Simulated scan of single mutants.
Amino acid sequence: METRATSVFLCFIVIASDCYAGVDLHPRFLLSSVQQAIDGYWGDWATWGSCSESCGTHGYRLRTRACDNPVPKNGGKPCSGADSEMSPCFSPCPVDGHWGSWNAMKLCSVTCGNGTEEYARSCDNPAPAHGGKQCSGPSVKVSPCSPSPCAIDGNWGKWSHWSACSVSCGNGAEYRHRRCDHPSPSHGGRACSGSSAQTQSCHLNACPVNGGWSHWSAWGHCSVTCNDGVQHRTRTCSNPAPSHGGHGCIGATQGSQSCHNNPCPVNGGWGHWSAWGHCSVTCNDGVQHRTRTCSNPAPSHGGHGCIGATQGSQSCHNNPCCHDKMPQNICVAIWYTGRCIEIVGRVECAKTCIYCH
């Protein structure tokens, strides 16, 4: 231990300049300077305090010490350094267990359709530690599984009722059907075998049969052997004949048409006589003629010609001829009131002739 009091004491006895070792030698301090100065020193550290965290790695703890070994006195120096210090502290925290993933333990109990399979899991994600809780819940579970739908073979449902007969009379048919839906084939199952429909005959009252015409017969002979005539043909209501109240045939049982033969021979026939021609003379007696033709009708197609003459003649009678009157060049004759009048020098002379000569 350093004793500053001794040096102070010596300086006091051997009063010399600059020999005070930093002590104020004022008279009022001389007495106290004679007392011994004690520097302070640290006492022992106290025990560590509690960790700031109950667990984990982020906590710290604290301890302290006092400058009391000894406490600084009489101007002694205080303790140097800190009066407390910290230290990290940690302790493992409790770790609660957690389940890991489910893992298949047993494969599905079936290869198709609906079954079950088992899964297991471990309490290792993480495992419980340092007093942590165990995992809650089962470690094994059973779950439904369905690898793939099973093939289902089809089976027939019930037959439907028979349908109504396909006809209202006579012989017909009636039908019924069924479906492959009990169940329907699925997932590669087989279809139903057999027919989905059935037919059976049905018999009702005989139907009315309407009559139908037969074919026409061949045309008969023409009614004439030449020129245009008529020929006939017939048919019967027998294809089929009407029965069971059916209607008879509509239409005629006989047909007719014109028939054309070679023209018949036409014998010639006389036409009318023409008018009589002029008399062959103008006075006294003469002859006059008339004609006719074989054109009513004209003979044709090998017919006979007309029999008889084509020309006829007869006598014609005129007034007597005049020979004793004036020369012809001075005689002018006109017909006037049935008489031949000679006009000569404006003198009228009655004549019995038609023309003057």
Score class of each variant (00 low, 15 high):
3 T>S: 11
4 R>F: 06
16 A>S: 09
21 A>Q: 11
24 D>C: 13
25 L>K: 11
25 L>G: 10
26 H>A: 14
31 L>N: 05
38 I>R: 10
39 D>A: 10
42 W>A: 04
44 D>A: 14
45 W>G: 06
60 Y>W: 13
66 A>L: 06
69 N>E: 09
75 G>R: 07
75 G>A: 02
84 S>H: 14
87 S>A: 15
88 P>Y: 04
89 C>N: 12
101 S>E: 05
103 N>V: 14
103 N>W: 01
106 K>F: 03
109 S>R: 04
112 C>R: 05
129 A>K: 15
134 Q>R: 11
140 V>G: 03
140 V>F: 09
147 P>D: 03
148 S>R: 14
149 P>A: 04
154 G>Q: 01
155 N>V: 00
158 K>T: 12
159 W>Y: 07
160 S>L: 05
161 H>A: 14
163 S>N: 11
164 A>R: 12
170 G>S: 01
182 H>V: 02
183 P>R: 05
184 S>A: 15
185 P>L: 02
189 G>M: 04
200 Q>Y: 05
202 C>P: 06
203 H>W: 12
204 L>D: 08
214 S>I: 01
221 H>A: 15
227 N>I: 00
235 R>F: 09
236 T>L: 13
236 T>W: 06
237 C>S: 06
244 H>C: 02
246 G>W: 01
248 G>T: 08
248 G>F: 02
250 I>S: 15
250 I>E: 06
251 G>K: 03
256 S>P: 00
258 S>E: 08
258 S>K: 09
264 C>T: 08
271 G>K: 01
286 G>K: 04
305 G>C: 02
307 I>R: 12
307 I>F: 11
325 K>Y: 05
325 K>V: 08
325 K>R: 11
331 C>I: 01
337 T>R: 13
338 G>R: 09
343 I>V: 15
345 G>S: 08
346 R>F: 12
348 E>N: 03
354 I>D: 13
354 I>S: 10
